[in-house]
């Protein structure tokens, strides 16, 4: 379970360009559920996601994961928590150009020191699971949008994280690809993983698999379903 208490995030705190991206958020995210942070651009949902995913520390407030306080951890430990607990699917997938799909999937596991053969087998199994076995050697620039998304999801799962975070995962996908994503998300939920999505796409926010919808505006939670 992830708990946020009085979380704020301020950028450029003492400068004229100061931005209060998140203002006093209290939120509990239960394990094994699909939670969607919804809201317009600039509402603070992506910033909140970075704080939850240990990509950034809150300016004030506390974040705990399964009761352990993580918001005050030094960078090195925060990275370890991030690697072991979270898998990320970024908005534009953020695959590393010039490398194959297989290499991209293997990347998050490099710092763990897992044997190369075992890592490769695991990555190939994931690509196979997402129907990309024959595209494993393809350079990522040659992949379609749907294929890139599935490679990004496979990469997010390589370290077998408990929580999968997806930032605007359907922003540039057509209807069929959105359905495909929802199927994958349902599969992850079925495996017992916690899925956390930011989106303002009604195809996601109204999807049946979503357990909880948290609406944000101006850095605050304005509405949240139980």
């Amino acid at each position: 379970m992830i708990e946020l208490t009085g979380v704020t995030k301020v950028y450029d705190q003492d400068k004229p360009t100061r931005v209060d991206a998140v203002r006093g958020v209290d939120l509990t995210i239960d394990d094994g559920r699909v939670t969607v942070l919804a809201g317009p651009s600039g509402s603070g949902k992506t910033t909140l996601l970075t704080v939850i995913g240990c990509l950034a520390r809150p300016t004030t407030g506390r974040v705990t994961i399964d009761g352990d306080l993580v918001s005050g951890l030094p960078e090195r430990f925060l990275t370890e928590v991030r690697r072991k607990t979270f898998g990320f699917v970024f908005q534009r997938f953020n695959l590393i150009r010039g490398m194959s799909a297989l290499d991209n999937v293997m990347l998050p596991a490099y710092p763990t020191g897992i044997a190369h053969a075992a890592l490769r087998d695991r990555a190939l199994a994931l690509l196979d699971h997402f129907g990309l076995a024959d595209r494993s050697r393809a350079v990522v620039e040659t992949l379609s949008g749907g294929e890139s998304q599935r490679v990004a999801i496979a990469r997010a799962l390589i370290n077998d994280p408990a929580v999968v975070i997806a930032d605007e995962p359907t922003a540039s996908l057509d209807g069929a690809r959105v359905e495909q994503f929802l199927t994958i998300a349902a599969d992850l939920k079925a495996q017992g993983k916690t899925v956390l999505i930011t989106s303002h796409d009604p195809r996601i926010t109204r999807a049946a698999l979503v357990d909880r919808l948290v609406a944000m505006a101006d850095g605050r939670i304005v509405e949240a379903t139980p």
Partner: peptide, 12 residues
């Protein structure tokens, strides 16, 4: 940035 986001440490 991507490498750090997906779990690489600064030392890596």
């Amino acid at each position: 940035g991507i490498l750090k986001a997906i779990g690489w440490e600064t030392s890596d």
